[in-house]
Write a protein that binds this DNA or RNA. Structure first.
Lengths: 128, 128
DNA sequence: CTCTCAATTGACTTTTACGTAAATGCCATG
DNA sequence: CATGGCATTTACGTAAAAGTCAATTGAGAG
């Protein structure tokens, strides 16, 4: 496992701009270490970026992504906090399950749409 | 089946503002008929709004939603257009399948996170 | 040391998706 | 008829998430 990644390496890997990665740093989503002023991203930062991109593709806002990332971290030590955390996780999961339903419905409708197109194509093919 | 819905009925049903529905009209996503200046939404408009909301929950932009809605419509009559449409639909489906993978991964990680919390809770419970 | 090139910082701009306010229309009800 | 309750239009505002640009800076090659 590599120890450090440069910012441009990661911009290439994830197809984002340096501006974006710095923005994520400003937002506290990643904390690359510094050698002088140069950012050195560790594997853990890289993994976080992967999770951020996933969140983005799913349409989560930066704040929501921040929340989700919080959940991946070490569980808190206090019982109240733990219960709160569990409740939040359950909420997010329900949210994701809703997205999954939306997704399946949309896929189903697109299947239908494609079928209509293919049928129409067959009709046209037959009439030629 | 109801013939018409008022704008406020729909704002309540979908929990959006009138501004939003008018915005969707400006964007050409719905075309309610008019009685005088008053908008009358038909069942088809209502169905479109449902699809729009689904798209939004999945993180699609207005433009992407517009594209998807295009796909649900009557297939075009010309062969070239049909083939193009089919290709586009396939692209969207691939896009959705990616989202599904993202979603499953995120759900899996949240499962893990919750488990960690519960374990931690058990430890604390035992030590008390 | 100088040159160069990538990296950084900070400021300003842009796009998307609405929110909000003001002024006004339409109409049923007391 | 005036009052309340939706509706409409026009216009300006705004938050999120970067994009863009300019001015520096630092580190390594020669």
């Amino acid at each position: 496992m590599r120890e450090y990644y440069s910012i441009t390496e990661l911009t290439r890997e994830f197809d984002v701009s340096t501006r974006t990665l710095r923005f994520y740093e400003d937002e506290g989503l990643v904390q690359p270490v510094r050698r002088g002023r140069t950012r050195l991203f560790r594997p853990s930062d890289r993994h976080l970026i992967r999770q951020i991109m996933r969140g983005k593709r799913l349409g989560f806002s930066i704040n929501e992504i921040r929340e989700i990332i919080q959940m991946y971290k070490e569980p808190p030590g206090e019982i109240g906090q733990l219960n709160l955390m569990i409740r939040r996780i359950e909420e997010k999961r329900e949210n994701l399950r809703q997205k999954r339903r939306d997704l399946e419905e949309t896929l189903a409708e697109l299947d239908q749409a494609e079928e209509s197109c293919v049928e129409r194509l067959v009709e046209l093919g037959v009439n030629t």
